[in-house]
Design a protein around this nucleic acid. Structure first.
Lengths: 220, 220
DNA sequence: ACCTGAACACCGTTCAAGT
DNA sequence: ACCTGAACACCGTTCAAGT
């Protein structure tokens, strides 16, 4: 049995979170799984928030940003988003973790953010606009990563399929006069499209708006 | 003292959540505030999740959707987003509530979603694209509503200002060689820009991407 | 430096019982 | 129909103490 290191704790936490959902990641549960007392964890992390930050940091550390000053900013932005989405797909609970922590406190995420900020400025946006754009872009990337594997973590595949069926039937049995489109599109709404849709159309959706606005800024 | 009605519970919950943050909204706390036993709430709500859904529904019910079939879809989409953002600004905890519940379970939110779906289809997108677009748009609107009043609810204005100052100093004292842009833009990043920026540029950012992609779809 | 034991102040929820 | 009392099975966290 290896020592109780920060890394081991974080990886165990990501394991539990990915297998059973983030709500199953509990100090006490984690300690039990690691064969240790709950308070042992408080030696390595000040509190649960710091543990979550550690998880988030570990996730995003897997993403190495390739900076290429010769290529136009929009290509780099696109690659930044796709790269982030890809790395977050490694753990089913990744997006959930990043939605729970303050991004500003996650060093590896700050690196991604810094790159996005630089590219936004390079595109000609003001300081404040660049801040908004980068926030929007990274938040969008996280949402894309959370999307397609609609992963109700913590359920078997069979239960998940049943859950999906119930959800779809719920939508389909809504009053058609008040929710016409929802009823009509119940199936694609629940199944959420293929991962490919998210990685191409989804990323396009995020980046295209920025490109168009950048062109507008340059015209003024 | 009025009776213990669903509405009263939901409004009290929104009050606590707005004043002290959503994490302060607890069954027991809520009961105490209402002068009642915790289990009394279980008569009106099956569990806490249903209470949150009730809160979300109450919030979005305040938004009356104006459908105008004579105006182009993009104007209607824009109005849908701005309207939603505006109504969510009534309660500081609104965005937090909507981030916590499954949107599919909130009737009033489904009405907004249905409208967005219809407009997306009208713009010429496929079923699956429309689903993705509507999800993206509504999620973006919620993020915009959460944005500018960076409302760490539960703190006095003075404490909030102090919290902001600490956060900014934290960013500014980062190593400048690894986070150059973050350090440079620490102030706008923390202060988050004016509400106006969010309501104009932010909405533009969301809608413009859709418009551009729609034009592309029509060309094919 | 690293971990344990015992305790505190909370949670959500169930179930039987009251009126 | 609407609410209470008592109990269960959990949380995160602190603090003193052990090695």
């Amino acid at each position: 049995m290896g020592k109780l290191t920060r890394e081991a704790v974080v990886e165990q936490a990501l394991g539990i979170g990915s297998a059973e959902g983030l709500q199953a990641v509990t100090i006490r549960r984690l300690a039990q799984e690691l064969g240790v007392t709950p308070m042992a964890l408080y030696w390595h992390f000040k509190n649960k928030e710091q543990l979550l930050i550690g998880m988030a940091d570990h996730l995003v550390e897997g993403f190495v940003i390739t900076e290429d000053y010769d290529r136009p900013w929009w290509e780099q932005l696109r690659e930044l988003v796709t790269g982030l989405v890809k790395v977050l797909r490694h753990y089913p609970c990744a997006a959930a973790v990043l939605e729970e922590v303050d991004h500003m406190t996650v060093p590896s995420f700050l690196r991604v953010w810094d790159t996005a900020l630089g590219l936004a400025k390079q595109a000609g946006f003001s300081y404040e606009e660049s801040c908004l754009i980068s926030k929007y872009l990274l938040q969008g990337a996280i949402a894309l990563a959370a999307g397609p594997l609609n992963r109700r973590s913590g359920l078997s595949d069979q239960d998940a399929a049943e859950h999906l069926r119930v959800k779809r039937l719920g939508l389909q049995s809504l009053p058609q006069d008040v929710y016409p489109h929802i009823v009509e599109m119940a199936t694609p709404l629940c199944e959420g499209g293929t991962a490919e849709l998210y990685d191409t159309f989804g990323v396009d959706l995020l980046v295209t708006g920025i490109e168009t606005l950048a062109a507008r800024v340059h015209r003024d």
